[in-house]
Design a protein around this nucleic acid. Sequence first.
DNA 1: ATATATATCTTAGCCACTAAGAGATTTAGC
DNA 2: GCTAAATCTCTTAGTGGCTAAGATATATAT
Lengths: 175, 175
Amino acid sequence: MSRTKARVTLLQEVEEAMRRSSAQGVLYGQTVANVAGIANSDLECMDILYLEGRVTAGRLAEVTGLTTGAITGVVDRLEKAGLVRRERDETDRRKVFIAVVPEKAMKIGELYVPMQQAMEKVWSAYSDEELRLLLRFATEGYKGVLAATAALKGLLDAPPEKRPDLKLKKRPRQT
Amino acid sequence: MSRTKARVTLLQEVEEAMRRSSAQGVLYGQTVANVAGIANSDLECMDILYLEGRVTAGRLAEVTGLTTGAITGVVDRLEKAGLVRRERDETDRRKVFIAVVPEKAMKIGELYVPMQQAMEKVWSAYSDEELRLLLRFATEGYKGVLAATAALKGLLDAPPEKRPDLKLKKRPRQT
DNA sequence: ATATATATCTTAGCCACTAAGAGATTTAGC
DNA sequence: GCTAAATCTCTTAGTGGCTAAGATATATAT
């Protein structure tokens, strides 16, 4: 694959476009939380529950990067809102599974309709083959970002002289 | 464009893959903020400043959906960290432009290197033509999400019976 | 059996956020 | 030009979600 000037420019354009759209995606999420009247983290957990199904409180902490204490708060609020249910694991009674309550959770799902419609509209202009390319890209991109996240976390444990020393505030908790 | 079962499945797969990768992108951002030792919103503002250049405090509030009071806090912290500078507009002395301090901001930029490398690796496998498709998609996707965000916000002002009444907590501020 | 590990919850304190309004400057109406 | 309204940022008080540390309950290992 050549590295002509044109290609470098193209790569930069792709990067910026991706960055913009992903930033706007974040804002959409914030708006959803806003309209639903729940905290951002609460919505994020609902999303994880939607993608992964029934998961333990501990796993929510792991995936979101929040402490278990914070997750207790999240689940308390979601449970009070009727969006999820706590279910003790009968084979290991320390564990608490969090399960969505589909009827209530659907109301949250409805807030994604504008987004889905917008995306539907965009996608409808692409052929099956083009969509497969996008799917491949999204899948590979996910793996890439996952690896990058791990690499970045690695910097925290790396020898101090190797990481950009920003000295902004006391070194925070390392997720 | 046909709507065969295969295509519907394909669309769903694309949607889920996009959702996953974008969720992971959010987590990457959180990790960056974490490593840099600055708040999430602070980083988001740095990102906007990078994309838009020199902008007013008010515009930061607009774009992020935060109140102007919150932005004051963000800019205070960023300024103290030396990442940005406040510059009063001489033609309209009410306005305050926020400008990045490139030398310091670069240190933040370095934290995106793992991400850029990962993306570079992904993109390197695509031809120029394929990249142009991705660019087109990202650009259209951005516009779509932007419109969807506006539509969702519209729900807030819509007749109450039209919006999913979630009754979770007191109706929050509408960005 | 006792000790150690694991999973969740509790508590105290912190910090970013909102809401409301003050201060400073500009624009509009007369 | 002068006053009133509008615009832009900052200030203040109060709220709520978050972390850190440790308590509680259950499971596993020696």
